[in-house]
Every structure is written in C-alpha cells, then in structure tokens.
Simulated assay, not measured.
Amino acid sequence: MGYPGLNQFPLAMDDETSIHDQVYEALAESLIQGQIPPGKSVSLRTLANELNVSPMPVREAVRRLIAQKALELQPSNKRLRVPSLSENRLLQLMTARQWVEPELAFLGAQKITRDVIVELKNDDERLMAALSKGDVDGYMKANYAFHFRLYNLAEADLFLDMARTLWLQSGPFMRVVFGRLGTVQLPQDHHQELIRALESGDHAAVRQHMAEDVHEGMELMLEALKG
C-alpha cells in the first residue's frame, strides 16, 4: 500500500541540506499532516519508493521517528506503523501540549512583528477556506503553519523540539477526528483572538488563547477516540 500524500514533499537532490535530513523532514511532515494513518503498516521500501530514494536515508529517518515515538517497528513482520493511541497516552499528550505550546506562544509574542502578524492572518484565512471546502489536507497544513510560525519566533529550541515531537505523535490522530466528525463540526478555534492579542501586545492573553486552542483541539481527539 502506498501513501500518495508523501509525493507532496519533493526532495531537492542538489540542495545543501543532506538527503537524510530531507527524507526525515518529508516523513515528519507527512506524519504531522496525517498522511500515514494510525495502525496501518508500511515497509521501508514503500516509503523509499514514494520518495524516490534508496532505502538507506529512509532507514535513518525512521530510526529518528521511532526514537520520537512517532513510528514503531512491529516485531512480528518488521514493518512500520503509527502507534495506536490509548486514552491514557492522549491525556499525556494533551497535558504536555498545554504546557509547552502556550509558553512558546508567549515567548514568540514578545518578538512578533507586523509582517509576521500579516502572515499569521494569511495562514488563518487559508485554514478557514479549507474548512469551508472540507479540505482536510489544506486545513492541517495551514493550522501547522499558523502555530509554528509563532513558535519559531520564541528562540527556545528545547521547547520547539518538544512541540514538534508532540505534533508528530498527535498529527495522525487529528486525521481520525476529521474522518469521524468532518470539518464542518469543528468548533471555532482561538486564532482570531490570539491575533488580536498579538496586535495589542497582550502577551498573557496570547498564552491563554493558545492554551484554550490546544485544549479544545485535544478534547476533540479524546471524543473521537472514545467514540
């Protein structure tokens, strides 16, 4: 079974970034955007074929993703899969995201510029347009861009790595939420309130709105898991 979504992440073979890093980023982005469904097995060769590379850089990328608990190796057949998500694990992810992401937003808010605010507004417009069309891929890309555009301003590499790892683990399950609820049933996010807080320089409100945004998104995942 192939994963056509992987071809959305073309590799630049002549780029200064190593092919190993490019393969890792392509697989990581595909997980964050839910292109590899939870519980579905996939082989190294399938991933290599989708990315049009040899198995060697894929093997190295997979090792990193296994260490980040975004993938697991099945002992019975040596194939890979996204780990299943228990309620206990989801609650841990929720707690961790609610701790680290509001802090990243708070730190990023202190370095915000008008140009970045414009880019955040554009991200949110793309997100809302995708929701109105039922475009799951477009929504997930725009939502990730919105969050990490702000987080990247924080200059807090440890927190940023933690947030990215948490998104790697939770991204595939957001796709499950869409499958069960559809895009039209999603509650209003807190992006608009967050943007207004950024414009007014209210850093504490930025932190609060991000905490609410993360909490409500994870609650949806919990409902979908229980359902």
Results as ranks from 00 to 15, higher is better:
residue 7 N to R: 14
residue 10 P to N: 05
residue 10 P to D: 07
residue 10 P to C: 08
residue 11 L to C: 06
residue 11 L to M: 09
residue 12 A to W: 15
residue 12 A to V: 12
residue 18 S to W: 04
residue 18 S to I: 04
residue 21 D to P: 05
residue 24 Y to W: 11
residue 32 I to Y: 02
residue 33 Q to I: 11
residue 34 G to F: 00
residue 40 K to T: 11
residue 42 V to M: 03
residue 44 L to V: 13
residue 45 R to V: 15
residue 48 A to I: 05
residue 50 E to R: 09
residue 51 L to S: 03
residue 52 N to C: 15
residue 53 V to N: 06
residue 55 P to L: 08
residue 57 P to C: 05
residue 59 R to S: 15
residue 61 A to V: 01
residue 62 V to F: 04
residue 63 R to H: 14
residue 65 L to R: 04
residue 66 I to E: 11
residue 70 A to P: 03
residue 72 E to K: 07
residue 75 P to V: 12
residue 75 P to M: 10
residue 76 S to G: 12
residue 78 K to H: 14
residue 83 P to V: 07
residue 84 S to W: 15
residue 84 S to K: 11
residue 86 S to T: 10
residue 87 E to G: 12
residue 89 R to K: 13
residue 90 L to C: 07
residue 101 E to F: 04
residue 109 A to W: 01
residue 113 T to S: 15
residue 116 V to G: 00
residue 117 I to P: 01
residue 122 N to G: 06
residue 122 N to P: 03
residue 125 E to H: 13
residue 127 L to V: 04
residue 128 M to D: 10
residue 138 G to D: 03
residue 139 Y to M: 10
residue 146 F to V: 01
residue 147 H to N: 09
residue 148 F to E: 00
residue 151 Y to N: 02
residue 151 Y to Q: 00
residue 153 L to D: 04
residue 155 E to V: 09
residue 155 E to F: 11
residue 158 L to M: 14
residue 164 R to F: 07
residue 167 W to A: 07
residue 173 F to T: 00
residue 175 R to G: 06
residue 182 G to F: 09
residue 183 T to W: 09
residue 189 D to E: 13
residue 190 H to S: 14
residue 191 H to E: 06
residue 203 H to D: 12
residue 214 V to F: 03
residue 221 M to T: 08
residue 222 L to E: 07
residue 222 L to F: 10
residue 223 E to T: 13
residue 225 L to T: 05
